[in-house]
């Protein structure tokens, strides 16, 4: 037990991802196009988004709502849905995502 050893680190290097700030918020949801992202691989996301949409419609009757349903169990950027996603994001002012886990 008394022998001393110098040992290497098993922890791998990873590329440092520079941190960016998030996007400025909208001042109010009234009259805005609100995106609702539903990750249907996780079943809970559907009733969560449905409940949120119902309540937002009550509070913001002048707003529009648009859902994006996504059912790949992989990174969205690695799927054929990227173009559809980008178009959808362009068409909304703000978005709510329900992960389901």
């Amino acid at each position: 037990m008394s022998n001393e050893y110098e040992v290497f680190s098993p922890w791998a290097e990873a590329d440092r991802v520079p941190a960016s700030g998030i996007t400025p918020r909208v001042s109010d949801l009234a009259g805005k196009k609100i995106g609702l992202f539903c990750y249907t691989v996780k079943p809970a996301s559907t009733p969560i988004i449905k409940a949120i949409e119902t309540r937002l419609r009550e509070r913001f009757p002048s707003s529009e709502f648009s859902r994006f349903e996504y059912d790949y169990n992989k990174d969205l950027m690695d799927t054929p849905d990227v173009a559809r996603f980008n178009d959808w994001v362009k068409g909304v002012d703000a978005a709510i995502a329900a992960v389901g886990d």
């Binding site: 998030i22 992202f37 992960v99 389901g100």
Partner: peptide, 22 residues
């Protein structure tokens, strides 16, 4: 979770709901 990130990266504000243990 990446979904909200990708929305933000397209310069739109987003908020994500995640289970409290995740």
């Amino acid at each position: 979770m990446y979904d909200a990130v990708y929305v933000e990266q397209l310069n739109k504000p987003a908020v994500a709901l995640v289970n409290e243990n995740f």
